[in-house]
Design a protein around this nucleic acid. Structure first.
Lengths: 345, 345
DNA sequence: CTGAAAGCGCTTACAG
DNA sequence: CTGAAAGCGCTTACAG
């Protein structure tokens, strides 16, 4: 059974007693098909287990019906959700998605020049990086439309998250608690061309808002680490060594915050009182773990990027647009000793 | 200039004054072409900047000329090199590579059933995971040939690294130094279906060889952490708190070893005397950092996997083969106070 | 709304 | 060794 010759559009047409043109129209949601005919064709496709051959479609249609997504090569919930959002929109338009993980710079350059790319991409979504840096601040060396997601550049359509705002929300929130304020700073990629501004943006917004509130963040209250839970552990140890509790900590990422939580437990500090931690990302496990965090509409951001790109592929020529998405603070036990205080006493 | 209609095989044929069949033969390295003709055709392709349309080729040829590589979604040198090795072999055979990062289990299942997959894959290379677990210990639900790389399963061709041997080499090496032996254990993925055996294999080989040598590795000398440099830092702190120097440490991975090095420096311990660390992976930066490590022929392993798969795609039906690759110990300053002692006094 | 036909850019027997 | 032709499975005007 498996490996059997795949049914073609001819067989579907034959079974449905229509021409192949009509089958094609059904496939492409062309409006000019009688509902009755459409149903007959769909039944035929169903009963044959028909799957259109994408290569034939690409040859006949003269385009790739494929969008490439270039993204950092990191296993995070964030990218899973982002892709999810992008894919959903693409699917509706019968577009495929080709993932291009940024393994190395040379691979990217080879890719952009390869015939794979030339024949496989009607447009490009670039996630999290401003790759123009890679090309000396110039536009990317491609004639295909480009959309940025989780990043911003004035020359391209951009769908991005307001990280400084998230930082500001964090500052405003933590400032209301008794005790001093601490933050954990994440080392970003050293390679300028691949620099991300995510964490930097969050921290900048955080510090800016603190200043506005007349609060300070001395050097001793800022711990720098790479991206890991263990970094959070080390940070809390450092804070403990230098200042008395309570500690109100903006961790900048859920994973780091997790390390803080673990270390706090190990040290016997009361979470929500002596140690308050705020993560970032709103990962699924934060709820069960009782971690307060800033949640982001990642799927929506991805979907918007896909929509903007598809519009360009369709021939739209307007000025670049930027769509901004904002995070939401979720309050949990890591900053509130119990559930959020009810509205009336 | 950009976006101009791409030249086709017809134009090449016309310019070279041959039929399109001959152009196709040149493209596919068919031996039955006179060198002179071949040169003429190649010149024509060159001057037109001709790139064959892969979709047309796939429609006409009735296959995808594409191999899918399913791999963990982690940014490491290891995977860059692995892909490099695979890609090189595929390129020679005019095969494309489609990367499928394992963002989530549901995405994988959808992928295997998608028409993208059906029409885009003549064969499958799976890196680092034994995905049969995902399907209840059964074979993968696909009729395409499958090859495992950096993993082993008796039912499929496998190209793998001997991690236990690496651990044994590490044990043998570290046992020659004065002082006690320590190791850092890496938490592996908790999801059984996505379990990797890499680190476990290294440690098992390490412990086995130690036992053979009559040495022991007490619980206190084994620190468990997630995969991060900070984990190495924490590990060394723990060892210091419990035992006197010197420390002979098998870190299990270069990144962890880096954390150990950093912490040793911070603590003012003499590297190569009071602290000896051995990494694993042979990353490029280890040389400059003076980190001893176990280097692996990753590209060769990838290339072998690609060759085995291509053979299956070509119709080969023999019993599954397993090709084993072995690591090599590179001695640097982190274990040797100076360069390796010369052979004669 | 629908069918027949041309065309997309290749590969592959088939003859010579 | 080489050319002409058929065929791969679609899309897309073009007529009706």
């Amino acid at each position: 059974m498996p490996g059997r010759r795949k049914p073609t559009i001819n067989e579907v047409a034959h079974l449905a007693k229509v021409g192949i043109g009509t089958v094609s129209r059904v496939l492409n949601n062309h409006p000019a098909v009688r509902p009755e005919t459409r149903a007959r064709v769909q039944a035929a496709m169903e009963s044959l287990g028909y799957r259109p051959n994408p290569h034939a479609r690409r040859v006949a249609g003269g385009r790739s019906y494929t969008v490439s997504v270039i993204l950092p090569f990191v296993a995070t919930e964030f990218y899973t959700r982002l892709i999810e959002g992008i894919e959903q929109v693409l699917q509706q338009e019968r577009y495929d998605l080709a993932l291009f993980p940024l393994l190395s710079r040379s691979r990217l350059e080879r890719y952009l020049e390869s015939s794979t790319f030339a024949y496989q991409t009607d447009g490009l979504i670039i996630a999290s990086y401003d790759l123009t840096e890679l090309f000396g601040g110039n536009l990317l060396p491609t004639d295909r439309p480009v959309t940025l997601v989780d990043a911003y550049n004035e020359h391209y359509d951009s769908s991005y998250m307001d990280n400084p705002l998230g930082g500001a929300l964090a500052a405003e929130y933590l400032a209301q608690f008794p005790g001093e304020i601490f933050a954990i700073k994440l080392e970003e990629d050293i390679d300028r061309a691949f620099a991300k501004t995510t964490f930097g943006g969050r921290l900048a917004g955080f510090q800016h808002k603190l200043a506005e509130l007349g609060r300070s963040l001395p050097q001793t209250h800022l711990y720098t680490t790479r991206f890991s839970a263990e970094g959070g552990q080390l940070a809390l140890r450092q804070f403990i060594a230098q200042s008395p509790p309570p500690y109100n900590i903006f961790a900048g990422a859920d994973l780091i915050a997790l390390g803080v939580l673990e270390e706090a437990e190990r040290q016997g500090l009361k979470i929500g009182h002596e140690v308050r931690v705020l993560g970032y990302d709103g990962q699924p496990w934060t709820e069960a773990r009782g971690l307060s965090t800033l949640a982001q509409p990642v799927e929506a951001m991805g979907a918007e990027a896909a929509r903007m790109l598809l519009k360009r592929i369709g021939g739209y020529r307007g000025a670049p647009r930027a769509v901004r998405f904002t995070p939401t603070l979720l309050e949990r036990a890591s900053t509130a000793p119990r559930a959020p205080i009810p509205a009336h006493p």
